[in-house]
Design a protein around this nucleic acid. Structure first.
Lengths: 113, 113
DNA sequence: GAATCATATACCCATATCGGAATGCGTTAG
DNA sequence: CTAACGCATTCCGATATGGGTATATGATTC
């Protein structure tokens, strides 16, 4: 089996840095594809492909506006990610403690070795 | 170019569901590889590979304990993900409004069409 | 040292990726 | 109707994946 599809998951979709940049840009408001491409220094097909992934996982919506197609943010899908990582919040500091304990172990091993 | 390496990023590392499950399990404390494998219903080599990725991005630490190798959580790397998604928090509700507006547009288009 | 246990690595396969270039499609303007 | 524009899709190639299975490495016990 290969890696899970980028469209299988919000987690997979936002694993790609350029897609995250797109989302950040869209916080400032809707934008047509070409403008996104230009602002991010990627080709138009490149932008379109990334937007397709974001649309398939529901992080982005599009609507026609004349010749253009405006893409807008739908950030609701990011909430589960925020909450999942939030479930580790109390371990962020604790991790330091564990690291300390870990370092202590190392020192001890060296002394005993 | 192919997809970015799973080890290139915490975002990429946690894109894989089984790796997320490992992290969740490790909240309850350190565990040897075999136990993780058993609890998650994966093979030992499978668990080892996932743990390797998690270790390379720094989400997990390991220390020897006799014959075993105990893996422990180092959740600090999840903080940037939490903060990044948190940057969209104020858009979670707003997204509903935009969706409403979007639906309105659709209705209008249908009426006009 | 030999046997055993715990873990890591190597190999193989099928798959989906991202990127680039070219092209297709739909809409608007002239 | 034709040209021009905006965007999506297709095709290609190189690459890394995740899952097996088999095997190597490492530490421990007898």
């Amino acid at each position: 089996m290969a890696r899970a599809a980028t469209t299988s998951d919000v987690f997979n979709a936002i694993a790609e840095p350029q897609r995250r940049e797109i989302l950040v840009l869209l916080r400032a408001g809707e934008r047509p594809v070409t403008e996104l491409a230009r602002e991010l220094g990627m080709t138009q097909p490149g932008a379109s492909k990334h937007l397709r992934v974001l649309r398939e996982v529901g992080l982005v919506r599009d609507r026609k506006a004349g010749k253009q197609r405006l893409y807008g943010l739908d950030a609701r899908g990011l909430r589960p990610v925020h909450e999942w990582t939030g479930g580790f919040e109390r371990f962020w500091d604790e991790s330091f403690d564990r690291l300390d304990a870990y370092v202590q172990d190392l020192k001890q091993e060296r002394q005993e070795g």
